[in-house]
């Protein structure tokens, strides 16, 4: 029994994080428009959702922004994590300044980006969103990859190089497979952060390019309807299906 205590405790704490999510799912089936009252079971919000083109466009936009910024960030962060295995000039300075975006309150960054992008005369929309999301995606991925990169067995790479493999070959055949799990979990985290970002996006979003969180946030004035809950429930479902599928594929290929 005593051995089970850690497991129970972890399950309990993480389980509590899911209570609001369960409520959100239940309320997606609420017949009432109001959040405060339960008006009986209904699928009407799912029907409304499927008729709502705007929501789907902003969902696609969000996926696009999150994908592009987390993948680009993964490239920059992984390269840097590999480079930093050696002592380099200005290492400390850039290591710590690149962390600023996840440490400093978002509203400060949002404000800074707004004035800066306006100064650069960049068109507000996709580009500004990706650039600003990359600032906080990079540190999340870097943190994941760098510990792994430091622990990386250099001798394997060097052996490959000595046997005549080019630097790219060595990277793709040896280094990358070793780092991949940490890169992927970094991308996963960065994607989630970008996908849920409101504050920074609010300042850099463009006239023809809305992201989903912004769409939801601007609905606050007239009231969020259970339509959004329906959308979140479906997205959760898709995520669960994807994760399970990838798991099954993985175990299958192992056998």
């Amino acid at each position: 029994m005593r051995k089970k205590i850690p497991l129970i405790y972890v399950a309990l704490v993480i389980g509590v994080l899911y209570i609001p999510i369960i409520v959100a799912i239940i309320f997606s089936f609420n017949d009432s428009r109001l959040y405060t009252t339960w008006g009986g079971f209904s699928l009407r919000w799912y029907a409304t959702l499927f008729r709502d083109e705007d929501i789907f466009i902003s969902l696609l936009n969000s996926i696009l922004v999150a994908t592009v910024s987390s993948v680009l960030s993964a490239i920059i962060a992984t390269a840097a994590a590999l480079g930093f295995r050696k002592k380099l000039p200005a290492e400390g300075f850039f290591k710590s300044t690149s962390m600023i975006p996840i440490l400093v309150p978002e509203i400060i960054l949002g404000m800074a980006f707004l004035v800066f992008f306006r100064f650069l005369n960049l068109p507000f929309g996709f580009i500004t969103l990706v650039l600003s999301h990359m600032t906080f995606c990079i540190p999340y991925i870097f943190l994941q990859v760098s510990t792994r990169a430091v622990a990386l067995d250099m001798s394997k790479t060097e052996a490959a190089r000595m046997l005549g493999a080019g630097p790219f070959r060595a990277f793709f055949n040896i280094t990358l497979p070793d780092l991949l799990p940490s890169i992927l979990s970094g991308i996963f985290l960065a994607f989630a952060m970008s996908f849920d970002d409101v504050v920074i996006s609010m300042f850099v979003v463009g006239p023809r390019f809305n992201t989903l969180p912004i769409k939801i946030y601007t609905q606050v004035k007239t009231g969020i309807t259970p339509e959004i809950n329906a959308l979140c429930t479906l997205m959760l479902l898709v995520t669960v299906i994807c994760l399970t599928a990838s798991k099954i594929i993985k175990t299958r290929t192992k056998i």
């Binding site: 609001p20 989630a192 849920d196 409101v198 989903l212 939801i216 946030y217 959004i228 809950n229 997205m235």
Partner: peptide, 12 residues
């Protein structure tokens, strides 16, 4: 949980 929008979670 990050897959459920934070405003929706707070509303819950």
């Amino acid at each position: 949980p990050f897959w459920i929008n934070s405003i929706v979670r707070i509303a819950s």
